[in-house]
Design a protein around this nucleic acid. Structure first.
Length: 977
RNA sequence: GCCGGUGUGGCGAAAUGGCAGACGCACGGGACUUAAAAUCCCGGGACCGUAAAAAGUCGUGCGGGUUCGAGUCCCGCCACCGGCACCA
């Protein structure tokens, strides 16, 4: 409670500074120029901004207005707004906790209800939470879920003037006429991701909750609109989604002016436009939006085609990229360019601006429950009698909940804590906040506390945090390449970027910064980068190929598509560039260099960023033709992707990565936390990082989703289905070792798998075989008899009766035995690294099956085997270890050390080499025989043996042998006509 | 509709482009036992053969392609699971 509340106060006392792009103490707020929190620091946008209060501000005292201004910027803030109320749970819930109109926990109905609640400004971190997904090793599906939840859309806000005629007629009907200067500048702002289709906006739609609705609605439509608003408000969110199939809406009687065409377009109200997203109003382009088209067809509204679809495709309802038509300034431009041009057009005329929208909402953080951390907040009254909130001093933490007789909310709907009046009402006259935090609060940072649980002075010591969480270098950076490796590594990178997306991100350092380049950079920036290395990662490769390697979407600026060949010339370009430019101001505070060189009539431009790890990291690359005459056709996209697709790419061998572990090394959990815990924890961690309390920007570097275990009937386990397997029963019957071993043996970690109790018996039998590999069965019978003969259930001394099997010897292992052991060591070691527990266990089963047949079992081998088994079945392994090491004659390892601390065995590859090999012989790809040949046989010898093989002869004798493929140590394939 | 994942024996599953089905479950046969359980040994994709074998043919969701060779790589589909969903 204490440190969770302490972190909350950090959130409370911070704001997000878009200038520095990070959270800062609230005290720095007054010095910064006003920019709306969460919005992109886009100075050229022309979007309206708020500003910090100055002493000249009218109304109220400076203190009051400063407090109000600070409170509006805090990362933890109070908001009076409709929230999700769940009657059965007796509390409000966050967006993320509401699924299909029901509570995520329990599936109870929820309703919208206006309440004053604490919120956390997670939206300020939307961009970072999105962008940094690229730096962590999580599954694609999980990352995708977070991306969808954050829901970034780039586009523009456009202002539509409400047609003066409708305003005049409206106002004269509603208010006392406001003299000659009528408000003809009534503006409605819409958000669109397709500003290029603005010319095709033939009507407008406002959400039923839109603020301007009352002002614009025509008298004759007032009644209809009001009814519609009530109709929409009466629908629960569940109904709203269920009824989504049929569009509804009402004409407002008002018109707006399409800023491009100048036409009057009708303004409608419809609930397919959400108040909570964008501006709550849209420009409807039925020609190129399915929802608008559906609506337009239902209400017979005009439709205009402004984007040409590819040949053979219907332009009506074409929502993908195409060629703009109809509006002169962008006529003929491809969508990407048309968007850019239209935005320029709008900005120049003050009609709109570029903007970014996120679906992510701020996090509703308070609950009306007893069992949660109370907010360390008190409420006071100012001179005017208005309530304001204040932090409890850090030294007063923790704020503990008082004991209560009744844990239900009060009769008038206040949280349970409100029942404790002496606790709530302080002597000073201040009152405690009675809401509590949700359970997520603790789970947002528990992994940090685990590092240093007993610390009384800090939530985690710096030393512990840095030792366990700190990563000195970014993940998987490969050291500088040896000369000549560049080509292979680039193919490796391309392969990882485009073919094998599952691999973790990594970067390659491929060249030192040359003295020429270092000198030039020093000259333009004053920075010394002489000991820096150039690096390139999969994201740069993707970016370069996707952005500049795709001729179809290329911008009309003389830029040319890149090929793999161009990338291959990076070292050449960077060694002796023609020019170097420097741009100090970049998002994230990176220093960037634009390095260019003219090659074969093209100017190749390479942008690199300076990282804190002594690298110049490739950001992007493109080439442009200098003059029209310089055009020489270069490899188009098809060639590039063909190159990438070459199967040779898959052969590129990846070197072992340098082990670095920023954040939690490995986090294993289910997908149910995808947009809850895993998003919340990332947010808190980033705030703590910005404020300097932790040393990594991400909490969990590698995350694996274990698959759900289904019931034996292949259904999700649930009480109502009655197919739940109680772990306690399994533990009693088979023990913890067999239980965990079975869960690991069922199949790949990430896969969904059905439970099968028979399968537990299988691994239980395996553990039994392991036991009998070590233990003399006769002695065990004696033990059991002695046990039944005595009454007391606990006889430690009786255990002494259990003896090691006489087959266990101090003798040396045979070559054959060593091969079996080391095959097992190799497999288990490699499979553990890859979290392939199922195949590791099967390798141990193979070993035990073999070893059971041995008359003499060398103790040293069995000791090594126990070390392998120990992580999978720790109890039985330690037990056997004790028995094995009790016999001093057999000692092979340091028997003083517990098994868990024994060094991991290393496999010896030389022991795995076979003397003779089995070589399958195929004819036209079909298996005909298997030869046994010496491992030293030459390809010629193998070929001859294959041709002479008895079983092969009938298939080749009457035919001509066209070709013989001999794969050394693998196989022979004879191709006949 | 969009995004992600998965399709291999009766079942859970293995297979750096190179002998498909390792390992385990279930099943069948045998040994031990008065008997059962436990344990140990043997068998096993389908088809066609055969007294039994052997040999042969077909087989990794479907249709194409690349390759000497494809469960694996490429193109196009289908089915199932998970997530998102009137987000402009």
């Amino acid at each position: 409670f204490r440190w969770t509340q302490w972190i909350f106060l950090k959130l409370y006392n911070s704001w997000f500074n878009p200038e520095t792009n990070k959270a800062e103490p609230i005290e720095t707020l007054d010095c910064a120029p006003g920019v709306p929190p969460g919005s992109a620091p886009d100075k050229s946008s022309g979007a309206p901004t708020s500003h910090a209060p100055t002493r000249q501000d009218a109304g109220g005292t400076f203190e009051t207005s400063r407090r109000a201004y600070r409170d509006s910027k805090r990362l933890a803030f109070v908001m009076e707004a409709p929230v999700w109320w769940c009657e059965q749970l007796g509390t409000v819930l966050a967006n993320e906790e509401v699924v299909d109109g029901k509570s995520e926990v329990g599936g109870f109905p929820v309703v919208r209800k206006p309440m004053r609640q604490w919120m956390l400004r997670i939206t300020a971190y939307a961009e970072k939470l999105l962008a940094d997904l690229d730096t962590i090793d999580w599954s694609d599906s999980l990352k995708e879920m977070q991306r969808n939840w954050i829901g970034k859309s780039e586009g523009a806000e456009v202002q539509f003037k409400v047609s003066s005629e409708s305003v005049i007629s409206n106002q004269s009907g509603t208010r006392a006429s406001t003299t000659g200067s009528l408000n003809t500048d009534l503006l409605i702002t819409v958000f669109t991701t397709r500003p290029d289709t603005l010319f095709g906006a033939t009507y407008m739609v406002l959400s039923p909750e839109h603020k301007l609705l009352a002002e614009i609605v025509a008298p004759e439509q007032r009644e209809a609109v009001k009814k519609y608003q009530q109709f929409a408000a009466g629908k629960s969110d569940l109904e709203r989604t269920e009824l989504a199939k049929e569009k509804t809406g009402v004409f407002t009687g008002a018109y707006a002016i399409n800023p491009l065409s100048g036409e009057q377009i009708p303004i409608w109200v419809a609930d397919y436009v959400l108040a909570s997203y964008g501006t709550g109003a849209i420009m409807a382009v039925p020609g190129h939006d399915v929802r608008d088209l559906e609506f337009a067809r239902k209400f017979d509204l005009p439709i205009r085609i402004v984007v040409q679809a590819p040949e053979g495709k219907d332009p009506l309802g074409w929502t993908e990229d195409g060629i703009s038509v109809g509006f002169r300034p962008i006529e003929g431009l491809a969508t990407k360019a048309a968007k850019r041009e239209i935005i320029n057009y709008l900005v120049e005329r003050g009609l709109g601006w570029k903007t970014i929208n996120y679906k992510l909402r701020d996090w509703l953080f308070s609950r009306q429950r007893y069992w949660g951390e109370p907010f360390p907040i008190v409420w006071k009254k100012d001179a005017q009698g208005n309530d304001y909130h204040e932090a409890v001093p850090e030294k007063s933490l923790p704020v503990l909940p008082p004991p209560l007789d009744d844990y239900k909310p009060t009769a008038d709907g206040q949280p349970p804590l409100a029942r404790a009046r002496e606790w709530v009402e302080l002597k000073s006259g201040a009152r405690r906040e009675t809401n509590t935090m949700p359970q997520w609060a603790g789970s947002c940072w528990y992994y940090l506390r685990y590092l240093d649980v007993a610390n009384e002075d800090r939530f985690v010591s710096r030393e512990a945090e840095q030792y366990w969480m700190g990563g000195a270098r970014p993940a998987g950076v490969f050291p500088l390449l040896a000369p000549g490796e560049w080509h292979a590594q680039l193919e490796n990178l391309c392969h990882r970027a485009f073919v094998d997306g599952k691999r973790p991100p990594f970067a390659v350092e491929y060249a030192r910064v040359t003295p020429q380049l270092a000198q030039e950079i020093q000259r333009v920036s004053g920075m010394d980068v002489s000991d820096y290395r150039h690096s390139i990662d999969v994201y740069a490769v993707r970016h370069v190929i996707n952005e500049h390697g795709n001729p179809f979407f290329e911008e009309p600026r003389g830029l040319m598509a890149l090929s793999l060949e161009d990338l291959e010339r990076l070292p050449e370009i960077l060694a002796e560039p023609d020019s170097v430019e420097f741009s100090a101001k970049q998002p994230g505070g990176f220093k960037r260099f634009v390095i260019s060189k003219r090659i074969n009539g093209f100017v190749c431009v390479v942008e690199e960023a300076r990282t804190k790890h002594g690298q110049l990291q490739l950001v992007t690359m493109y080439k442009r033709k200098t003059t029209a005459r310089d055009v020489t056709p270069k490899a188009p996209l098809s060639d590039t992707s063909e190159t990438l697709r070459r199967s040779e790419l898959t052969k590129a061998v990846a070197p072992a990565p340098v082990k670095v572990t920023p954040g939690v090394d490995l986090y294993v959990g289910g997908t149910e936390h995808a947009v809850l815990h895993l998003l919340y924890a990332r947010f808190w961690h980033k705030v703590l990082f910005d404020l300097g309390y932790v040393s990594t920007p991400e909490p969990f570097f590698k995350l694996v989703n274990q698959g759900l275990i289904l019931g034996e009937d292949m259904q999700k386990m649930s009480k109502s289905r009655g197919n739940v397997v109680n772990p306690d029963d399994i533990l009693v019957e088979y023990g913890a070792d067999a239980f965990r071993l079975y869960e690991m043996f069922m199949g790949p970690l990430e896969m969904v798998k059905p439970w099968n109790t028979k399968g537990v018996e299988g691994v239980y039998r395996f553990l039994g075989r392991v036991w009998r590999l070590f233990i003399d069965e006769k002695s065990e019978v004696e033990f059991e008899q002695a046990q039944t003969a005595t009454e007391s259930p606990r006889h430690k001394e009786l255990l002494e009766l259990i003896q090691l099997s006489p087959a266990i010897t101090a003798s040396d292992a045979t070559k054959e035995q060593l091969k079996v052991l080391h095959t097992c060591i190799k497999k288990v070691t490699e499979d553990l690294d890859g979290l392939r527990f199922n195949t590791a266990i099967s390798a141990m089963m193979v070993f035990v099956n073999e070893a059971t047949a041995w008359q003499a079992r060398p103790a040293s081998m069995l000791a090594d085997f126990l070390v392998l088994l120990q992580p999978f079945a720790p109890h039985i392994s330690e037990e056997l270890w004790e028995k094995l090491t009790a016999n001093s004659k057999l000692e092979t390892r340091n028997s003083k050390l517990q098994l868990a601390y024994q060094p991991w065995p290393k496999f010896d590859p030389t022991l795995l080499v076979e003397d003779t090999l089995e070589i399958p012989v195929q004819v036209n790809g079909k298996l005909r025989d298997v030869l046994r040949v010496s491992a030293t046989a030459t390809p010629q010898e193998i070929e001859a043996a294959a041709l002479n093989a008895e079983k092969v002869q009938p298939f080749i004798s009457s035919k001509t042998v066209k070709k013989i493929i001999v794969v050394p140590k693998k196989l022979v394939n004879i191709v006949v006509a």
